[in-house]
Design a protein around this nucleic acid. Structure first.
Lengths: 241, 241
DNA sequence: TGCAACCTTGCCCTTGGGGCAAGGTCAAGT
DNA sequence: ACTTGACCTTGCCCCAAGGGCAAGGTTGCA
């Protein structure tokens, strides 16, 4: 018959852990010897190993207690297994992002993006626009590392077409206008036709490349009522949820 | 400029989590607007994403704070990566044991072991010995599933040799003897030579098959002073730590 | 006989947030 | 101008799964 410390060392937990399992009704209290020490049998060890197997799989102790008595265990085990697979995949994804962080991909923008941004003032863009673009690309590269590069190159290419460049410059200038200025409606029209021409009839997604989530656009819009209204118009005309 | 809820929804955490990070000095407090709301920039979002990447890798927040300022980060990332690999392996092992549990391998002894145990009384073993063997194999199969079968078969084979069977039977009978009875020393001698004969000069491990941990032996010994002394003698003679 | 290493219960501490209260603020529609 | 619902603010207590310590009793070994 084992003492609590022997059982604990044996299964690879601390005595405290076993006492906690008793207190929570996970493992029944064993008989005590003459001096009040708990005395365990091999069957208790097997039971404890089962509990630890579930606990190490991340099953909450309360749920282990439920499973202990009922015979829902057979069914539950499959879901726990799936859950475990999902967590393993999650950890692998985390590891991947961690390695990108180690390579410095999250700490600064790539050199060509910085280069691109530095040329924007020369093309006629405002300081505000450049700062917004900086933030925007920072976010896109941080959240969509795999597609960010393609989005960026598409955007940079747009500015080499004089007609399209003029449209984007007007976007910039709209910032301080009244939301109901007719120039807002006019720009919305121009953006719709330019977008349709560039990306075809069935939109891959709204506006500037498919990888930019709506949230980024929302953050951009927030600084100007005119931009907010422009965004509303575009969503209506392009049929985006 | 983002509010806390926008930033939170964006990075995929709750606003509370961000406040906790402020309180713990992980993420600096951003400027407040006229009404006291926190206002975040894209740089904060990038910083938060870094923090979450580390947190999801299981790095304690206190440690993330240390890494945030110092440039020990580059070094620490490698260890965190290793750590993560180890945890992925651990989860996979847990999953493996979970599947064995699902197959019922932990709930009962295999049929051939039960069969073997049921034949022991007929060979002259005591009830006590059979119960101890039952417990012992329960433990071995629970903790060393991969090697248990080989250990068991080796042990079963031993009992088919009449000379070895007699040695084991004497082990059983020793239980109630005085620890200093000369028969204890005599059995120790016999066991040493039998073990050497069976397993060669350089022991794979002590006594009955290499997979049985010392702790199991300890549990067996606990019930008899004579067995305890026998164990001590064997360890000395066979040179086991 | 002494000592180290156990065991007992009880209580507070920790991590990483969740949830609620009580109040202030914002944007939209009426 | 008012209301409504969704935000935001701080402050507080709560959770799981144990860790650690205290104060006392017990065991094994020389």
């Amino acid at each position: 018959m084992l003492t609590i410390g022997q059982l604990a060392g044996y299964v690879g937990v601390t005595a405290k852990t076993i006492r906690v399992y008793h207190a929570k009704g996970l493992l029944p209290e064993p008989p005590r010897d003459a001096s009040g020490y708990r005395r365990y049998s091999a069957a208790d060890a097997v039971e404890l190993i089962k509990i630890r197997t579930l606990a190490e799989a991340g099953v909450p102790l309360a749920r282990i207690r439920e499973l202990r008595s009922g015979d829902a265990l057979r069914d539950a085990l499959r879901q726990i297994d799936d859950d475990l697979s999902a967590r393993i995949d999650g950890l692998r994804a985390t590891q991947e992002r961690l390695r990108q962080l180690a390579d410095g991909h999250l700490s600064a923008l790539p050199a060509d993006v910085v280069d691109h941004l530095s040329r924007l003032p020369g093309l006629g863009f405002s300081e505000r626009w450049v700062a917004l673009q900086n933030d925007l690309w920072l976010l896109v590269f941080a959240t969509h590392p795999s597609t960010a590069r393609a989005s960026f190159q598409d955007q940079a290419a747009i500015l080499t077409d004089p007609a399209l460049l003029e449209v984007v410059l007007e976007y910039d200038r709209l910032h301080d206008l009244d939301p109901h200025d007719p120039r807002v409606d006019a720009l919305a029209e121009k953006l719709v036709s330019a977008t349709r021409a560039r990306y075809g009839a069935d939109m891959p997604a709204y506006d500037r490349g498919s990888a930019i989530p709506a949230l980024v656009q929302g953050a951009v819009n927030a600084s100007s009522p005119a931009w907010r209204r422009l965004d509303t118009l575009l969503r209506k005309r392009l049929g985006v949820s």
